[in-house]
Design a protein around this nucleic acid. Structure first.
Lengths: 243, 243
DNA sequence: GCAACTTATTGTTGGACCACAATGGGAGTC
DNA sequence: GACTCCCATTGTGGTCCAACAATAAGTTGC
């Protein structure tokens, strides 16, 4: 009966490395994904194979997979195995949904974060953006009025801001915005549900674009700041008076 | 042996609600937290009790708890049970780590990102920071000269910038910086290896603090921008040209 | 070409053990 | 008698195992 031995080994490793068997297994599985350069749609080895690879039991592997699954990186599929997925959006949504009950300031935090970013990139855009890029912004902005549903309007709204972020030409920034996109979209949707006047959003964006055309960084900072603060007003939490 | 019956029930519920037994258990546990109005520090029932409450097996409950744990809402504590935790920060950092490959972002990207952030938070700090907080910055800055090694100097340097971030009072920002801390520390270490004049760093920080004392947002923006751009000069060239 | 069967995989369950911490009781001491 | 220290008991999470149900891909038979 090597059961006891395995348990003792695991306990020893845990004391040594500070990580539980589940964490270790999750780490090894993530390493495996990176090492084999698996992409979305590729399948992971079966749970039993992972159990052999990681040296942990199938239950432990399942808990590790459950963690990775919560991150939205994999989606299990019976008979096939776990498939590498692009479930980032749903995962982030679930994450914030789970936290909404606890910390009500999450939305305000994100909106404040956006304010710092989108105001801050003004200088770079004013200095570096080409006229064609600014025209492209105009085209994206025009689509807001064509939206048939609130969701579509929020998506077009987000597309405008994401395009703006793209002009900053910073990978870390685009990554973070992609990461946060589900939450930002949710914020925009709530805002439009509260006050569904698409023309106002388009006009605010238009003013921002005009400031970019004029290469007026101060006007851009002012208009963008006002635009984002305005959205904050319609969040269900509280007026941003709390420190 | 009502095992088969239970399995069939679960399967039926899953078809009906579209949720697996684990998801259902996680939902019921979250409901339980809400219903009992548990706060941070309170303890959840034991896994075996939750198993009875939710009607699922202990392994299923464990997978459900693993999900909630990944969200950072609970932290298991032996002999006591799972305690409600405030692990949002760590959870977000893990999410970032799972989804984003920092190594793909060049040092220049990270430094550019820092520039946007640390310049952008100036307005908020100038308006809201207390004199005590600014004095605290001064104390942190003073430690840079006491550093015995390059690593220690980099750490003190980072502590200054992290304290600055803390004054922005935005959780998302703090979390992202915590997540990026290894890379930023690496950048700082490289910079100090190239040009180990700690007094210059301290002086630059001192000027920034002086601008904050004077509540001069323009001076802050200029000095911080120059400070960060200066560091960029000592970074190794990288294939950052790819769009 | 299509349907039924086979099979491999995930989903779930129940049971078992270990390590660890808290609890309580009993022996020893003042 | 009251107090302190030690140790057995107990209960909890962590891990493992074996089994069965559900499911869908693959295979075979027609």
């Amino acid at each position: 009966m090597e059961n006891a031995q395995a348990v003792r080994d695991n306990a020893a490793r845990r004391r040594a490395g500070g990580r539980s068997a589940v964490d270790a297994a999750a780490g090894r599985i993530l390493d495996l994904i990176r090492a084999r350069q698996l992409n979305v749609g590729d399948v992971l080895p079966t749970e039993r194979e992972l159990s052999e690879i990681t040296g942990a039991s199938r239950n432990t592997v399942r808990e590790a997979l459950r963690t990775i699954r919560t991150y939205g990186l994999i989606e299990p599929k019976p008979r096939v195995g776990a498939v590498l997925a692009d479930g980032q959006s749903i995962a982030i949504q679930n994450f914030f949904a789970a936290h909404m009950d606890v910390s009500r300031s999450s939305f305000a935090d994100i909106q404040g974060f956006r304010r710092i970013i989108e105001v801050g990139i003004g200088d770079h855009i004013v200095l570096n953006a080409t006229s064609e890029q600014i025209e492209a912004l105009d085209a994206i902005n025009a689509r807001i009025l064509e939206s048939c549903s609130i969701e579509e309007a929020a998506e077009n709204d987000f597309n405008f801001h994401m395009a703006l972020i793209g002009l900053a030409d910073n990978r870390m920034l685009t990554d973070i915005y992609s990461f946060l996109s589900p939450v930002i979209l949710r914020i925009m949707t709530i805002g439009k549900e509260m006050r569904p006047v698409l023309a106002d959003t388009r006009a605010a964006h238009g003013e921002i674009i005009a400031a970019l055309r004029a290469r007026d960084r101060l006007a851009y900072a002012y208009l963008m700041s006002r635009h984002l603060d305005f959205a904050l007003r319609f969040l269900p939490e509280e007026p941003a008076s709390a420190t």
